[in-house]
Simulated scan of single mutants.
Amino acid sequence: MRSKWSILPYLFILPNVTLYVVFIFIPILWVLYLSFTDFSILNAGEWAGLKNYARMFRDEAFTKAIVNTFIFWVCTVVPTMAFGLIIANLLNLKIRAVSLFRGSIYLPGVISSVAVAMTWLWLYDPIGGPINGMLEKIGLTGQNWLHDPSVALMSIIMVSIWAGIGFCMIIYLAGLQGIPDHLYEAARLDGATGFKQFVMITFPLLKPITFFIFITTTIRSFQVFDLVYILTSGGPANKTTTIVNEIIKNGFGEYNMGYAATQGIFLLLITFIITMINYYFTSSSSDFD
């Protein structure tokens, strides 16, 4: 029998679709249009064709920002996910005060990124900071963490990892608690060790969650701005500048909205490509039903 068509389901999703179109889809189209103009706050802008895109690929500062952003992405996403998974497995055990440990590790993830950056600005202080103080007590030389070109970017990466572990941990923990116990019991009866249980049961069943965490942490790493702005402002000598830093500088510092829009479209494409590549390799080895 042919089912009767009803408008009711579409009315339920209409609010979400409306919000998506108004606040995401239309702004993306507007930014795409601006990328082909020389629009700025000071003038209405004229059609510039591919001029902004040609300028972008010749811009040495933006090229450096791309390299820094990719380094930041590679050095933060994998360690953050790995530490989050390890800690989630440890805190999934029945131990005393486990809720206290979970809350303590998750806390940096809910604190304002500005507060996190200000805290680490004090910790990294080369004169009175606790990190250099501890290094000197054990006979090591302190570093100028945020002003030495050789360590500045890695210093920000360490802060990002520290702040992001809690998010990964809590999501992985939810996934671990959703895995049926009887699977582990059957594996133990077959003589599987703890590591083999993790490889054969835990990790495969966490693949959808791993995909979700990878995408969210990737977007977070490509959109990093506040940590960099507060800790180094992109310096020294553009060693820590990122794509978003360049977008903000060109758009709101130099009022060149058309060029900033072009860089924004580039960032959107890079994020989309990485997401699709990861989805392809993840979905090819796991079913997402």
Score class of each variant (00 low, 15 high):
residue 173 L to I: 05
residue 22 V to R: 04
residue 119 T to Y: 08
residue 233 S to A: 11
residue 200 M to H: 13
residue 90 L to R: 06
residue 98 V to W: 05
residue 45 G to Q: 07
residue 71 I to R: 09
residue 233 S to G: 11
residue 220 R to F: 11
residue 123 L to W: 10
residue 264 G to Y: 04
residue 96 R to D: 03
residue 114 V to E: 02
residue 54 A to R: 14
residue 11 L to H: 07
residue 192 A to Y: 10
residue 223 Q to I: 03
residue 53 Y to A: 07
residue 158 M to P: 02
residue 9 P to S: 09
residue 223 Q to R: 13
residue 16 N to K: 04
residue 50 L to V: 14
residue 154 M to F: 14
residue 97 A to M: 15
residue 237 A to C: 00
residue 265 I to N: 03
residue 248 I to E: 02
residue 36 F to S: 13
residue 91 L to M: 06
residue 189 L to H: 01
residue 149 P to E: 01
residue 1 M to T: 14
residue 224 V to G: 01
residue 249 K to Q: 08
residue 73 W to G: 03
residue 85 L to P: 02
residue 119 T to N: 08
residue 78 V to F: 14
residue 225 F to A: 01
residue 16 N to F: 13
residue 154 M to S: 13
residue 28 I to F: 13
residue 102 R to N: 12
residue 35 S to C: 04
residue 49 G to N: 06
residue 184 Y to M: 05
residue 215 I to Q: 10
residue 262 T to W: 02
residue 145 W to S: 02
residue 116 V to K: 09
residue 265 I to G: 01
residue 262 T to H: 03
residue 248 I to V: 14
residue 5 W to K: 15
residue 236 P to W: 01
residue 197 Q to H: 07
residue 183 L to F: 11
residue 182 H to R: 11
residue 110 V to Y: 05
residue 211 F to S: 10
residue 40 S to W: 01
residue 2 R to D: 14
residue 88 A to H: 02
residue 29 L to Q: 07
residue 166 G to D: 07
residue 24 I to W: 02
residue 76 T to I: 09
